[in-house]
Design a binder for these strands. Sequence first.
DNA 1: CGTATGCTCAAACGATCGTTTGAACGCCTG
DNA 2: CAGGCGTTCAAACGATCGTTTGAGCATACG
Lengths: 208, 208
Amino acid sequence: MEAIVNRSSSTKDRILGAAEVLFAQRGFEGASLRQLTAAAGVNLAAVNYHFGSKDKLVEQVFRRRLDTLNAQRLAALGNARESGNDRLEDVLDAFIRPALKLSHEDSGSLFMRVLARAFAEHDDSLRQFLSENYGHVMRQFTAEFARLLPHLSKEELYWRIDLVTGALTHAMSGFGMIQRKQDVSEGVHLEQTIQHLIRFAVAGLTHP
Amino acid sequence: MEAIVNRSSSTKDRILGAAEVLFAQRGFEGASLRQLTAAAGVNLAAVNYHFGSKDKLVEQVFRRRLDTLNAQRLAALGNARESGNDRLEDVLDAFIRPALKLSHEDSGSLFMRVLARAFAEHDDSLRQFLSENYGHVMRQFTAEFARLLPHLSKEELYWRIDLVTGALTHAMSGFGMIQRKQDVSEGVHLEQTIQHLIRFAVAGLTHP
DNA sequence: CGTATGCTCAAACGATCGTTTGAACGCCTG
DNA sequence: CAGGCGTTCAAACGATCGTTTGAGCATACG
Protein backbone atom coordinates (compact mmCIF):
# COMPACT_ATOMS: atom_id res chain seq x y z
CA MET A 1 0.00 0.00 0.00
CA GLU A 2 1.22 3.44 -0.91
CA ALA A 3 1.76 6.21 1.54
CA ILE A 4 -1.15 8.62 1.35
CA VAL A 5 -0.22 11.32 3.85
CA ASN A 6 2.21 14.17 4.14
CA ARG A 7 5.63 12.81 5.00
CA SER A 8 6.58 16.01 6.76
CA SER A 9 4.07 15.74 9.63
CA SER A 10 4.80 13.84 12.79
CA THR A 11 4.41 10.10 13.13
CA LYS A 12 1.44 10.47 15.44
CA ASP A 13 -0.38 12.81 13.08
CA ARG A 14 0.34 10.66 10.06
CA ILE A 15 -1.12 7.64 11.88
CA LEU A 16 -4.22 9.59 12.90
CA GLY A 17 -4.74 10.83 9.35
CA ALA A 18 -4.35 7.43 7.76
CA ALA A 19 -6.53 5.86 10.44
CA GLU A 20 -9.36 8.27 9.69
CA VAL A 21 -9.23 7.41 6.00
CA LEU A 22 -9.05 3.66 6.46
CA PHE A 23 -11.59 3.47 9.28
CA ALA A 24 -14.03 5.33 7.05
CA GLN A 25 -13.35 3.04 4.11
CA ARG A 26 -13.13 -0.35 5.83
CA GLY A 27 -14.41 0.08 9.36
CA PHE A 28 -12.62 -0.32 12.64
CA GLU A 29 -12.20 -4.06 12.38
CA GLY A 30 -11.76 -4.11 8.63
CA ALA A 31 -8.76 -1.78 8.62
CA SER A 32 -5.68 -3.61 9.87
CA LEU A 33 -2.70 -1.99 11.54
CA ARG A 34 -0.53 -3.23 8.70
CA GLN A 35 -2.61 -1.47 6.05
CA LEU A 36 -2.81 1.55 8.30
CA THR A 37 0.87 1.92 9.06
CA ALA A 38 1.80 1.24 5.45
CA ALA A 39 -0.57 4.00 4.29
CA ALA A 40 0.88 6.35 6.89
CA GLY A 41 4.43 5.44 5.92
CA VAL A 42 5.42 4.44 9.43
CA ASN A 43 6.53 1.25 11.09
CA LEU A 44 3.97 -1.32 12.23
CA ALA A 45 5.01 -1.01 15.86
CA ALA A 46 4.51 2.76 15.87
CA VAL A 47 0.81 2.48 16.66
CA ASN A 48 1.34 0.48 19.83
CA TYR A 49 4.28 2.66 20.78
CA HIS A 50 2.45 5.98 20.42
CA PHE A 51 -1.12 4.99 21.29
CA GLY A 52 -0.83 1.83 23.34
CA SER A 53 -3.30 -0.24 21.36
CA LYS A 54 -5.58 -0.15 18.38
CA ASP A 55 -8.59 0.66 20.56
CA LYS A 56 -6.81 3.65 22.04
CA LEU A 57 -6.03 4.80 18.52
CA VAL A 58 -9.73 4.66 17.67
CA GLU A 59 -10.49 6.85 20.66
CA GLN A 60 -7.87 9.39 19.62
CA VAL A 61 -9.29 9.54 16.10
CA PHE A 62 -12.60 10.58 17.64
CA ARG A 63 -11.05 12.94 20.15
CA ARG A 64 -9.10 14.87 17.52
CA ARG A 65 -12.31 15.87 15.76
CA LEU A 66 -15.01 15.77 18.40
CA ASP A 67 -13.25 17.92 21.00
CA THR A 68 -13.26 20.97 18.74
CA LEU A 69 -16.54 20.08 17.04
CA ASN A 70 -18.56 19.91 20.24
CA ALA A 71 -16.79 22.92 21.72
CA GLN A 72 -17.87 24.89 18.67
CA ARG A 73 -21.42 23.61 19.05
CA LEU A 74 -21.67 24.67 22.68
CA ALA A 75 -20.05 28.03 21.94
CA ALA A 76 -22.53 28.67 19.13
CA LEU A 77 -25.41 27.67 21.38
CA GLY A 78 -24.15 30.03 24.06
CA ASN A 79 -23.83 32.90 21.60
CA ALA A 80 -27.35 32.30 20.33
CA ARG A 81 -28.81 32.42 23.82
CA GLU A 82 -26.87 35.53 24.83
CA SER A 83 -27.82 37.51 21.75
CA GLY A 84 -31.47 36.51 22.04
CA ASN A 85 -31.31 34.69 18.69
CA ASP A 86 -32.52 31.46 20.17
CA ARG A 87 -35.38 30.46 17.96
CA LEU A 88 -35.50 26.83 16.85
CA GLU A 89 -33.64 27.71 13.67
CA ASP A 90 -30.80 29.25 15.65
CA VAL A 91 -30.39 26.27 17.96
CA LEU A 92 -30.36 23.94 14.99
CA ASP A 93 -27.82 26.16 13.30
CA ALA A 94 -25.57 25.93 16.34
CA PHE A 95 -25.82 22.17 16.16
CA ILE A 96 -25.53 21.64 12.43
CA ARG A 97 -23.16 24.32 11.20
CA PRO A 98 -19.98 23.17 12.99
CA ALA A 99 -20.53 19.60 11.86
CA LEU A 100 -21.19 20.58 8.29
CA LYS A 101 -18.20 22.90 8.20
CA LEU A 102 -16.05 20.00 9.35
CA SER A 103 -17.52 17.68 6.77
CA HIS A 104 -16.62 20.16 4.04
CA GLU A 105 -12.98 20.29 5.05
CA ASP A 106 -10.22 18.28 3.43
CA SER A 107 -10.76 14.96 5.15
CA GLY A 108 -13.60 15.95 7.43
CA SER A 109 -16.20 14.14 5.36
CA LEU A 110 -14.32 10.94 5.98
CA PHE A 111 -14.61 11.51 9.68
CA MET A 112 -18.37 11.85 9.33
CA ARG A 113 -18.38 8.39 7.81
CA VAL A 114 -16.36 7.14 10.75
CA LEU A 115 -18.91 8.69 13.08
CA ALA A 116 -21.79 7.05 11.24
CA ARG A 117 -20.01 3.72 11.55
CA ALA A 118 -19.73 4.24 15.27
CA PHE A 119 -23.51 4.60 15.35
CA ALA A 120 -24.02 1.42 13.36
CA GLU A 121 -21.53 -0.66 15.30
CA HIS A 122 -23.19 -1.23 18.63
CA ASP A 123 -19.82 -1.64 20.27
CA ASP A 124 -20.43 -1.04 23.95
CA SER A 125 -17.03 0.32 24.92
CA LEU A 126 -17.07 2.79 22.04
CA ARG A 127 -20.59 3.95 22.87
CA GLN A 128 -19.58 4.36 26.48
CA PHE A 129 -16.57 6.42 25.46
CA LEU A 130 -18.70 8.72 23.30
CA SER A 131 -21.40 9.01 25.94
CA GLU A 132 -18.95 9.80 28.73
CA ASN A 133 -17.05 12.40 26.77
CA TYR A 134 -19.68 14.10 24.66
CA GLY A 135 -23.04 13.11 26.13
CA HIS A 136 -23.42 16.45 27.88
CA VAL A 137 -23.57 18.24 24.53
CA MET A 138 -26.55 16.24 23.33
CA ARG A 139 -28.21 16.69 26.71
CA GLN A 140 -27.83 20.45 26.54
CA PHE A 141 -29.32 20.66 23.06
CA THR A 142 -32.16 18.35 24.03
CA ALA A 143 -33.00 20.66 26.95
CA GLU A 144 -33.05 23.60 24.55
CA PHE A 145 -35.38 21.78 22.18
CA ALA A 146 -37.67 20.96 25.09
CA ARG A 147 -37.82 24.65 26.01
CA LEU A 148 -38.63 25.71 22.46
CA LEU A 149 -41.21 22.97 21.89
CA PRO A 150 -43.10 22.99 25.18
CA HIS A 151 -46.29 21.56 23.70
CA LEU A 152 -44.58 18.24 22.92
CA SER A 153 -44.56 15.41 25.44
CA LYS A 154 -41.17 14.09 26.44
CA GLU A 155 -41.80 10.93 24.49
CA GLU A 156 -42.89 12.84 21.41
CA LEU A 157 -39.86 15.12 21.62
CA TYR A 158 -37.44 12.23 21.87
CA TRP A 159 -39.07 10.63 18.87
CA ARG A 160 -38.60 13.68 16.73
CA ILE A 161 -35.06 14.42 17.85
CA ASP A 162 -34.19 10.83 17.13
CA LEU A 163 -35.57 11.03 13.61
CA VAL A 164 -33.85 14.33 12.91
CA THR A 165 -30.57 12.96 14.22
CA GLY A 166 -30.86 9.99 11.93
CA ALA A 167 -31.53 12.20 8.94
CA LEU A 168 -28.55 14.42 9.65
CA THR A 169 -26.19 11.55 10.33
CA HIS A 170 -27.27 9.85 7.15
CA ALA A 171 -26.96 12.99 5.05
CA MET A 172 -23.68 14.26 6.43
CA SER A 173 -21.89 10.97 6.03
CA GLY A 174 -22.72 11.11 2.36
CA PHE A 175 -24.61 7.85 2.06
CA GLY A 176 -27.17 8.91 -0.43
CA MET A 177 -27.35 10.26 -3.91
CA ILE A 178 -26.62 13.85 -2.98
CA GLN A 179 -23.67 15.33 -4.75
CA ARG A 180 -22.24 18.77 -4.58
CA LYS A 181 -23.30 20.98 -7.44
CA GLN A 182 -20.47 21.96 -9.76
CA ASP A 183 -21.45 25.51 -10.56
CA VAL A 184 -21.51 27.09 -7.12
CA SER A 185 -18.67 28.10 -4.86
CA GLU A 186 -17.79 26.14 -1.78
CA GLY A 187 -19.09 28.79 0.60
CA VAL A 188 -22.41 29.12 -1.20
CA HIS A 189 -22.90 25.37 -1.30
CA LEU A 190 -22.15 25.02 2.39
CA GLU A 191 -24.67 27.74 3.24
CA GLN A 192 -27.34 26.22 0.99
CA THR A 193 -26.84 22.81 2.57
CA ILE A 194 -27.11 24.23 6.08
CA GLN A 195 -30.36 26.01 5.22
CA HIS A 196 -31.61 22.80 3.65
CA LEU A 197 -30.99 20.73 6.74
CA ILE A 198 -32.33 23.37 9.09
CA ARG A 199 -35.58 23.76 7.16
CA PHE A 200 -36.01 19.99 7.05
CA ALA A 201 -35.32 19.68 10.77
CA VAL A 202 -37.69 22.53 11.63
CA ALA A 203 -40.44 20.92 9.59
CA GLY A 204 -39.88 17.57 11.29
CA LEU A 205 -39.76 19.03 14.78
CA THR A 206 -42.66 21.46 14.58
CA HIS A 207 -45.32 19.68 12.50
CA PRO A 208 -48.66 19.41 14.35
CA MET B 1 -20.82 -20.04 22.87
CA GLU B 2 -24.24 -21.41 23.62
CA ALA B 3 -26.70 -22.47 21.01
CA ILE B 4 -29.34 -19.77 20.61
CA VAL B 5 -31.68 -21.18 18.00
CA ASN B 6 -34.29 -23.86 17.73
CA ARG B 7 -32.59 -27.21 17.45
CA SER B 8 -35.49 -28.65 15.51
CA SER B 9 -35.14 -26.48 12.39
CA SER B 10 -32.86 -27.37 9.53
CA THR B 11 -29.14 -26.69 9.52
CA LYS B 12 -29.49 -24.02 6.84
CA ASP B 13 -32.21 -22.18 8.75
CA ARG B 14 -30.36 -22.41 12.02
CA ILE B 15 -27.28 -20.88 10.37
CA LEU B 16 -29.34 -18.09 8.82
CA GLY B 17 -31.00 -17.32 12.14
CA ALA B 18 -27.77 -17.25 14.11
CA ALA B 19 -26.09 -15.20 11.35
CA GLU B 20 -28.79 -12.55 11.56
CA VAL B 21 -28.32 -12.24 15.30
CA LEU B 22 -24.54 -12.12 15.25
CA PHE B 23 -24.25 -9.88 12.20
CA ALA B 24 -26.54 -7.41 13.95
CA GLN B 25 -24.53 -7.59 17.15
CA ARG B 26 -20.97 -7.66 15.82
CA GLY B 27 -21.09 -6.78 12.15
CA PHE B 28 -20.20 -8.88 9.13
CA GLU B 29 -16.49 -8.92 9.82
CA GLY B 30 -16.81 -8.96 13.57
CA ALA B 31 -18.88 -12.15 13.68
CA SER B 32 -16.68 -15.16 12.97
CA LEU B 33 -17.89 -18.42 11.48
CA ARG B 34 -16.79 -20.18 14.64
CA GLN B 35 -18.99 -18.02 16.87
CA LEU B 36 -21.77 -18.30 14.32
CA THR B 37 -21.75 -22.07 13.92
CA ALA B 38 -21.40 -22.55 17.67
CA ALA B 39 -24.43 -20.34 18.27
CA ALA B 40 -26.38 -22.25 15.63
CA GLY B 41 -25.31 -25.58 17.08
CA VAL B 42 -23.85 -26.83 13.81
CA ASN B 43 -20.41 -27.82 12.63
CA LEU B 44 -17.95 -25.17 11.47
CA ALA B 45 -17.78 -26.59 7.96
CA ALA B 46 -21.55 -26.42 7.52
CA VAL B 47 -21.49 -22.80 6.36
CA ASN B 48 -19.11 -23.49 3.49
CA TYR B 49 -20.95 -26.69 2.65
CA HIS B 50 -24.42 -25.15 2.45
CA PHE B 51 -23.62 -21.60 1.31
CA GLY B 52 -20.24 -21.82 -0.37
CA SER B 53 -18.60 -18.97 1.51
CA LYS B 54 -19.19 -16.41 4.22
CA ASP B 55 -20.01 -13.73 1.63
CA LYS B 56 -22.68 -15.91 0.08
CA LEU B 57 -24.15 -16.44 3.53
CA VAL B 58 -24.38 -12.68 3.99
CA GLU B 59 -26.29 -12.42 0.72
CA GLN B 60 -28.72 -15.12 1.79
CA VAL B 61 -29.35 -13.39 5.10
CA PHE B 62 -30.48 -10.36 3.11
CA ARG B 63 -32.44 -12.36 0.58
CA ARG B 64 -34.48 -14.20 3.18
CA ARG B 65 -35.91 -10.94 4.48
CA LEU B 66 -35.74 -8.51 1.58
CA ASP B 67 -37.45 -10.70 -1.01
CA THR B 68 -40.71 -10.72 0.90
CA LEU B 69 -40.29 -7.23 2.33
CA ASN B 70 -39.92 -5.54 -1.04
CA ALA B 71 -42.59 -7.68 -2.64
CA GLN B 72 -44.97 -6.48 0.08
CA ARG B 73 -43.93 -2.90 -0.55
CA LEU B 74 -44.59 -3.09 -4.28
CA ALA B 75 -47.88 -4.90 -3.71
CA ALA B 76 -49.02 -2.23 -1.28
CA LEU B 77 -47.99 0.50 -3.70
CA GLY B 78 -49.96 -1.20 -6.47
CA ASN B 79 -53.04 -1.53 -4.28
CA ALA B 80 -52.85 2.13 -3.34
CA ARG B 81 -52.70 3.23 -6.96
CA GLU B 82 -55.54 0.95 -8.06
CA SER B 83 -57.90 2.03 -5.31
CA GLY B 84 -57.15 5.69 -5.87
CA ASN B 85 -55.70 6.05 -2.38
CA ASP B 86 -52.43 7.37 -3.66
CA ARG B 87 -51.85 10.50 -1.67
CA LEU B 88 -48.39 11.03 -0.23
CA GLU B 89 -49.48 9.43 3.04
CA ASP B 90 -50.58 6.29 1.22
CA VAL B 91 -47.35 5.91 -0.71
CA LEU B 92 -45.35 6.37 2.46
CA ASP B 93 -47.57 3.82 4.19
CA ALA B 94 -46.85 1.32 1.44
CA PHE B 95 -43.14 1.89 1.98
CA ILE B 96 -43.01 2.02 5.75
CA ARG B 97 -45.65 -0.44 6.95
CA PRO B 98 -44.07 -3.68 5.64
CA ALA B 99 -40.69 -2.71 7.06
CA LEU B 100 -42.12 -1.79 10.42
CA LYS B 101 -44.18 -4.95 10.59
CA LEU B 102 -41.04 -6.94 9.98
CA SER B 103 -39.13 -5.03 12.62
CA HIS B 104 -41.83 -5.86 15.16
CA GLU B 105 -41.56 -9.58 14.54
CA ASP B 106 -39.52 -11.97 16.65
CA SER B 107 -36.07 -11.30 15.23
CA GLY B 108 -37.03 -8.81 12.57
CA SER B 109 -35.65 -5.87 14.51
CA LEU B 110 -32.26 -7.53 14.44
CA PHE B 111 -32.45 -7.68 10.67
CA MET B 112 -33.10 -3.95 10.58
CA ARG B 113 -29.85 -3.48 12.44
CA VAL B 114 -28.13 -5.65 9.87
CA LEU B 115 -29.60 -3.50 7.14
CA ALA B 116 -28.39 -0.33 8.82
CA ARG B 117 -24.94 -1.83 9.04
CA ALA B 118 -25.00 -2.52 5.34
CA PHE B 119 -25.63 1.19 4.81
CA ALA B 120 -22.75 2.16 7.06
CA GLU B 121 -20.28 -0.31 5.63
CA HIS B 122 -19.47 1.03 2.23
CA ASP B 123 -18.64 -2.42 0.98
CA ASP B 124 -18.89 -2.21 -2.79
CA SER B 125 -19.87 -5.80 -3.53
CA LEU B 126 -22.64 -5.70 -0.94
CA ARG B 127 -23.97 -2.39 -2.24
CA GLN B 128 -23.90 -3.77 -5.75
CA PHE B 129 -25.82 -6.83 -4.63
CA LEU B 130 -28.50 -4.72 -2.96
CA SER B 131 -28.72 -2.32 -5.89
CA GLU B 132 -28.99 -5.09 -8.46
CA ASN B 133 -31.66 -7.02 -6.59
CA TYR B 134 -33.75 -4.35 -4.95
CA GLY B 135 -32.87 -1.07 -6.67
CA HIS B 136 -36.01 -1.16 -8.78
CA VAL B 137 -38.15 -0.84 -5.67
CA MET B 138 -36.53 2.40 -4.58
CA ARG B 139 -36.72 3.69 -8.15
CA GLN B 140 -40.45 3.01 -8.33
CA PHE B 141 -41.16 4.80 -5.07
CA THR B 142 -38.96 7.72 -6.11
CA ALA B 143 -40.98 8.07 -9.31
CA GLU B 144 -44.16 8.10 -7.26
CA PHE B 145 -42.81 10.80 -4.98
CA ALA B 146 -41.82 12.85 -8.01
CA ARG B 147 -45.39 12.60 -9.31
CA LEU B 148 -46.90 13.67 -6.00
CA LEU B 149 -44.43 16.50 -5.42
CA PRO B 150 -44.21 18.07 -8.89
CA HIS B 151 -43.19 21.49 -7.62
CA LEU B 152 -39.85 20.13 -6.31
CA SER B 153 -36.78 20.10 -8.53
CA LYS B 154 -35.13 16.74 -9.02
CA GLU B 155 -32.24 17.81 -6.86
CA GLU B 156 -34.54 19.03 -4.12
CA LEU B 157 -36.57 15.84 -4.22
CA TYR B 158 -33.52 13.62 -3.90
CA TRP B 159 -32.35 15.68 -0.95
CA ARG B 160 -35.60 15.18 0.90
CA ILE B 161 -35.95 11.51 0.10
CA ASP B 162 -32.42 10.99 1.28
CA LEU B 163 -33.09 12.71 4.59
CA VAL B 164 -36.33 10.82 5.12
CA THR B 165 -34.60 7.53 4.33
CA GLY B 166 -31.91 8.30 6.86
CA ALA B 167 -34.47 9.09 9.53
CA LEU B 168 -36.40 5.88 8.92
CA THR B 169 -33.31 3.69 8.81
CA HIS B 170 -32.05 5.24 12.01
CA ALA B 171 -35.37 4.88 13.79
CA MET B 172 -36.24 1.38 12.66
CA SER B 173 -32.88 -0.07 13.58
CA GLY B 174 -33.49 1.09 17.11
CA PHE B 175 -30.39 3.23 17.52
CA GLY B 176 -31.91 5.95 19.57
CA MET B 177 -33.69 6.36 22.83
CA ILE B 178 -37.08 5.27 21.60
CA GLN B 179 -38.56 2.41 23.56
CA ARG B 180 -41.86 0.69 23.18
CA LYS B 181 -44.44 1.86 25.64
CA GLN B 182 -45.46 -0.78 28.15
CA ASP B 183 -49.12 -0.02 28.49
CA VAL B 184 -50.34 -0.45 24.94
CA SER B 185 -50.90 -3.58 22.91
CA GLU B 186 -48.54 -4.64 20.15
CA GLY B 187 -50.99 -3.78 17.39
CA VAL B 188 -51.75 -0.33 18.78
CA HIS B 189 -48.08 0.45 19.23
CA LEU B 190 -47.27 -0.62 15.67
CA GLU B 191 -50.04 1.57 14.29
CA GLN B 192 -48.97 4.56 16.40
CA THR B 193 -45.39 4.20 15.25
CA ILE B 194 -46.42 4.00 11.61
CA GLN B 195 -48.49 7.15 11.92
CA HIS B 196 -45.58 8.80 13.67
CA LEU B 197 -43.15 8.07 10.90
CA ILE B 198 -45.61 8.96 8.15
CA ARG B 199 -46.42 12.33 9.68
CA PHE B 200 -42.73 13.07 10.12
CA ALA B 201 -41.96 12.05 6.53
CA VAL B 202 -44.86 14.08 5.14
CA ALA B 203 -43.67 17.15 7.03
CA GLY B 204 -40.13 16.70 5.75
CA LEU B 205 -41.18 16.10 2.16
CA THR B 206 -43.83 18.82 1.77
CA HIS B 207 -42.47 21.77 3.74
CA PRO B 208 -42.21 24.93 1.60
C1' DC C 1 33.49 11.89 24.98
C1' DG C 2 30.08 8.81 27.28
C1' DT C 3 25.61 7.88 28.04
C1' DA C 4 20.87 8.56 28.63
C1' DT C 5 16.49 9.23 26.10
C1' DG C 6 13.03 9.04 22.49
C1' DC C 7 12.00 6.87 18.57
C1' DT C 8 12.15 3.49 14.57
C1' DC C 9 13.03 -0.81 12.79
C1' DA C 10 12.72 -5.96 11.31
C1' DA C 11 11.32 -10.02 13.26
C1' DA C 12 8.76 -12.91 15.78
C1' DC C 13 4.83 -14.16 19.13
C1' DG C 14 0.40 -16.65 19.85
C1' DA C 15 -4.29 -16.25 18.49
C1' DT C 16 -7.85 -16.34 15.30
C1' DC C 17 -9.55 -15.98 10.76
C1' DG C 18 -12.12 -18.41 6.35
C1' DT C 19 -11.62 -22.45 4.00
C1' DT C 20 -10.53 -27.33 2.69
C1' DT C 21 -10.06 -32.17 3.48
C1' DG C 22 -11.24 -36.98 4.06
C1' DA C 23 -13.31 -40.03 7.04
C1' DA C 24 -17.61 -41.28 9.28
C1' DC C 25 -22.48 -41.14 9.70
C1' DG C 26 -27.64 -41.88 8.77
C1' DC C 27 -30.91 -43.07 5.46
C1' DC C 28 -33.13 -44.36 1.37
C1' DT C 29 -33.25 -47.42 -2.61
C1' DG C 30 -32.51 -51.45 -5.25
C1' DC D 1 -27.99 -56.79 2.94
C1' DA D 2 -25.13 -53.81 -0.14
C1' DG D 3 -24.21 -49.46 -2.04
C1' DG D 4 -24.88 -44.69 -3.17
C1' DC D 5 -25.91 -40.05 -1.46
C1' DG D 6 -26.44 -36.07 1.30
C1' DT D 7 -24.79 -34.45 5.40
C1' DT D 8 -21.87 -33.89 9.54
C1' DC D 9 -17.67 -34.28 11.83
C1' DA D 10 -12.76 -33.33 13.81
C1' DA D 11 -8.65 -31.78 12.13
C1' DA D 12 -5.70 -29.26 9.64
C1' DC D 13 -4.37 -25.61 6.04
C1' DG D 14 -2.15 -21.09 5.06
C1' DA D 15 -3.06 -16.34 5.84
C1' DT D 16 -3.57 -12.47 8.61
C1' DC D 17 -4.57 -10.36 12.88
C1' DG D 18 -2.84 -7.17 17.23
C1' DT D 19 0.94 -7.08 20.02
C1' DT D 20 5.72 -7.62 21.92
C1' DT D 21 10.60 -7.76 21.68
C1' DG D 22 15.31 -6.25 21.47
C1' DA D 23 18.59 -4.27 18.62
C1' DG D 24 19.80 0.02 16.23
C1' DC D 25 19.60 4.90 15.41
C1' DA D 26 19.68 9.91 16.35
C1' DT D 27 19.85 13.73 19.32
C1' DA D 28 20.70 16.14 23.83
C1' DC D 29 23.09 16.66 28.17
C1' DG D 30 26.57 15.84 31.86
